[in-house]
Computed example of a mutant assay.
Amino acid sequence: QIEDIFDSIDDDENLLDIIFPITVTSGDFTEITINGLEDLRDLATDCKEGGDDDDIECIDFVYPMTMFTFNVNLEQTNTVEVSSDRELRLFFKDLDDDSLVSFDFPVTLKLHDETTIVVESNQELAIAIENAKDDCDEDDDDDYNDDDFNEDEFKEELVECVWFVTDFIRNDVDQTPQYVNYILNFKEDGTVVTGFRGATTVEGTWSSTVGDDGAKLTIDFESNTDFNLEWTVYDLGD
């Protein structure tokens, strides 16, 4: 929701003031109280970029659905209706070690392309999950404004167009008046040209990577060194 608000207007300055304490919900729905900015930074540092988790997001249960619990004698002990992933996760978390669980089939599942399938047994459920788990990009990297591009797409986007500088802030210093409307023309041979259109330009080199720590663009000029940096790329826009 915060990202949607930030994206709603392109030409404004977005500032987020967090009023502590806040509660952060982890992937397993554990709630963590964060009392200050340092605690939040520590938590963010521990968060694995790239989504090093075991959840499967290419297929989802359609809620509500009903679960049955049994004891070791196969006697039914409870009937529970769950209405969300959170309720389902907490239901399993609260089970005793010797509890047995069954779904009330049929169960409806929604695939990543919004189509649905119906399964009638545990075996069909297991097959459906196995078949779907690698069918989509699970978008686990949680980058702000992430467009889920790979390195080839990143390079193709760079060399396809001539880029214009609209904002330039480095080391908290706003240098936009100096560089606004500067061009950056990235070429397939790893060279890049910058300067004002129609004026003297400067040639340098560029390289890129896309990894667990996001997309990086390294630019190097012998002169005009303000551009020399490994830049973090958050978005490939239109």
Rank of each mutant, 00 (worst) to 15 (best):
A215R: 10
F227R: 02
Y234L: 12
K187I: 04
E138C: 03
N181K: 10
I32L: 13
K133L: 10
F29P: 06
N35W: 08
L40I: 06
E160W: 03
Q178R: 10
D137T: 04
D238P: 05
E151V: 09
V165N: 07
N171R: 12
T108Y: 01
K216H: 14
V62W: 00
D10A: 15
E3C: 07
D140I: 03
E160C: 11
V173D: 06
L158V: 01
M67W: 04
V72D: 02
V165W: 01
F105T: 00
D53F: 10
G50A: 06
D28V: 14
W231R: 07
T77K: 04
E124T: 02
R89A: 15
D146A: 14
L43M: 14
G214I: 05
I219P: 11
V165Q: 06
D142L: 08
R41S: 15
G198Q: 05
F20M: 07
N78G: 07
D212C: 04
L229S: 13
E222L: 11
D7C: 09
K216A: 15
D139Q: 11
P21Y: 02
F196L: 11
E124D: 08
G190Q: 05
T69K: 02
Q76S: 06
C161P: 03
R170Y: 12
G214M: 08
L88H: 11
T33K: 15
C47A: 14
T218N: 15
D39W: 09
D4Q: 10
G195A: 04
G198A: 10
V159I: 14
V193N: 05
D55S: 15
S102M: 08
T225R: 13
D52S: 15
M67S: 09
A132D: 00
V24Q: 09
D147P: 01
I34N: 04
K187E: 11
D146Y: 03
V118I: 08
I9Q: 14
A199Y: 01
N150Q: 01
T108L: 02
D152T: 07
E153Q: 11
V107G: 03
T25P: 06
Q123P: 03
N145Q: 14
D146Q: 09
L40A: 14
E130W: 00
T116M: 10
E151Q: 09
Q175G: 11
D213R: 13
F92I: 10
I219S: 12
C161K: 15
E31T: 13
D85G: 14
D147K: 06
D212S: 07
S121E: 01
E75L: 11
E75N: 08
L217C: 08
N228L: 10
N73T: 02
K155C: 09
T115F: 00
S84L: 06
D152V: 07
D60V: 06
D137V: 06
G204D: 01
I5Q: 03
N228I: 09
L95N: 11
G190N: 04
T79G: 07
V180R: 04
D152A: 12
F149A: 12
T25I: 15
V82Y: 00
A199E: 08
D98Y: 05
S207Q: 10
R41M: 15
